[in-house]
Computed example of a mutant assay.
Amino acid sequence: MPTITMRVEDAVQRRSFLAGSAGVAAGVTATAHGRAAARTSDPAGYARTTARLREQYWTHEPAHLLPRVAGHVRAGAGLLARRPDPRVAVAVAESALLVSRIAFFDLQLGAKQVEPWQDLALAAADTAGDGALGAAVLGHMSFAPAWSGRGGEARGRLDAARKRASRGDAGPVIHAWLDAVASEAEVRLGNPGGAFPLLDRAADVLHPAGAAAGSWSAAGPPAWLDWFSGPRLDGFRGAAELAAGRTDHAKATLHRTLAGLSPDADKQRAVTLADLAGAAAAARDPEDACALLHRVLELVEKQGYATAVDRVRTVRAALAPWARERFVAELDDRLAAGQQAPPPAPDPAA
Rank of each mutant, 00 (worst) to 15 (best):
D248C: 06
W224V: 01
D266W: 13
R246K: 13
D266L: 12
R256C: 00
L233Y: 09
V309F: 03
P286E: 02
S229D: 14
Y305P: 04
L261G: 03
L254K: 01
T272F: 03
L299F: 08
F236Y: 15
A243I: 01
K302D: 13
F236H: 13
V271Y: 01
A244V: 04
K267G: 09
A265R: 10
Q268R: 15
R246T: 01
H255K: 12
D285I: 00
E241M: 11
R256Q: 08
L242R: 11
A291M: 08
A239V: 01
A291W: 08
A289V: 02
G260Q: 04
H249Q: 15
L293V: 11
A279N: 00
V296P: 05
V300M: 00
L233T: 08
D275T: 01
V300S: 02
R232P: 06
D275F: 12
V300C: 10
A277G: 05
E298I: 12
T257A: 05
V309S: 13
G260I: 01
T257F: 05
L242C: 06
G238V: 06
A265V: 07
Q303W: 11
E287S: 11
A265Q: 14
L242H: 09
R295W: 00
Q303A: 11
E301G: 11
Y305T: 00
P286L: 02
C290A: 15
V271I: 15
E301Y: 09
E301R: 14
Y305L: 09
G260L: 08
A240L: 09
V271D: 05
E287Q: 15
A280R: 11
S229Q: 10
W224N: 02
R246G: 00
R232N: 07
Y305M: 05
T307L: 14
A274V: 09
R295Q: 15
A308Y: 07
H249T: 08
Y305S: 01
K251W: 13
G245V: 07
E287W: 09
L242Y: 05
G304C: 12
C290G: 06
G235E: 10
A244G: 03
D266A: 14
A280C: 04
R237Y: 05
P263E: 04
L242T: 04
P286M: 07
V300T: 11
D248Q: 15
A274R: 10
A259Q: 11
S229G: 11
D288V: 11
D285F: 00
A283D: 13
Y305K: 04
L242V: 06
K251C: 12
A250W: 07
D248S: 15
R284Q: 13
A308L: 07
G230L: 12
L258I: 02
R232C: 01
R295D: 15
G230Y: 12
P231C: 06
L254F: 06
L273D: 00
A240D: 02
L292E: 02
V300A: 08
T253A: 07
A259M: 01
S262T: 14
D288P: 00
A270R: 04
P286N: 07
L254G: 01
S229F: 08
A239D: 02
G230A: 14
